[in-house]
């Protein structure tokens, strides 16, 4: 944001160029029964950056997000063709356990969905699933995760309280902390701020800027301004196709496809 000195800006640009690809999707088709929901998707997603999926409702952006941690597996009659490669492994191949995949690729949902348990138990839920029982170790994970989600200072004295005693924005940050507690590489956010007030939204947007230093963030948003504000790369979807993806500033200032331009200038959608 700050433009007072030249040096960091240059650094920023070099860093942008250096982004390593972590997710590589090649010729991917997805069908719900006979409905062709995603068509020949080709897309690369850079590591340790924020990638935003934008597009009108029903364009397939959430569907694509859910292929990245295989949440679509639970919908009957879903069929996927093509390659979804994360860090060099085809996640739909037999060598990948879906449990491990979801540990590495965390998810935050549109509606904050804490468990009806204490704040502590919500964050410890994931580590416990994966076999951590040691109290001291869990304490440490809970504290670290809540700190990373910028919630620790607000809740450190009430860890035993029900998660439902928190406000909507706090609940959503709790869900982020819960996702971080299993130490993922990638964090998927499915319209994670769309049910929140502007101040809570801002907090989470700021949080993503912190988190991208350590995690790869892929977010679906119906808010183009949000994508423009906080993402490094933006992907534009239309009718199940990836129309265009590029560095965010370039996609918004100089889109190469006419449909992208129409959408971001508000001609439809």
């Amino acid at each position: 944001m700050s433009t007072t000195t030249e040096a960091p800006q240059v650094k920023e640009t070099t860093k942008t160029v250096d982004f390593k690809t972590i997710i590589d999707i090649k010729d991917m088709d997805l069908y719900y029964g006979t409905y062709h929901a995603l068509k020949k998707v080709n897309l690369t997603i850079p590591e340790k950056a924020v990638t935003a999926f934008i597009g009108p409702s029903g364009c397939g952006k959430s569907t694509l997000l859910r292929t990245l941690n295989r949440m679509n597996d639970m919908i009957p009659n879903t069929r996927i063709e093509g390659l979804v490669d994360i860090a060099g492994t085809d996640i739909y191949s037999n060598e990948v356990d879906v449990e491990t995949l979801r540990k590495k690729v965390g998810m935050v949902f549109q509606q904050a969905n804490p468990f009806p348990k204490s704040i502590y138990d919500n964050v410890a839920y994931g580590p416990r699933l994966h076999g951590i029982k040691n109290k001291a170790q869990l304490d440490e994970i809970v504290e670290q995760s809540l700190k990373q989600a910028a919630l620790w200072n607000e809740v450190k004295d009430f860890l035993k309280r029900s998660a439902f005693s928190l406000s909507g924005g706090q609940q959503q940050r709790l869900c982020i902390a819960r996702a971080l507690a299993v130490n993922p590489e990638i964090l998927l956010m499915d319209e994670a701020t769309s049910a929140l007030d502007p101040i809570s939204t801002l907090k989470i947007e700021e949080l993503t800027q912190e988190l991208k230093n350590k995690y790869t963030i892929v977010m679906v948003t119906h808010n183009m301004h949000q994508a423009a504000r906080i993402s490094d790369q933006t992907v534009f979807f239309l009718n199940g196709e990836v129309v265009e993806f590029d560095q965010t500033d370039k996609l918004f200032s100089n889109p190469s496809d006419k449909r992208t331009e129409d959408y971001i200038t508000g001609r439809f959608g």
Partner: peptide, 14 residues
């Protein structure tokens, strides 16, 4: 609620 199951599955639960 379905969301409560999703939350659990998304953390890698069986």
């Amino acid at each position: 609620p379905r969301a409560r199951r999703d939350a659990s599955f998304a953390l890698g639960a069986t």
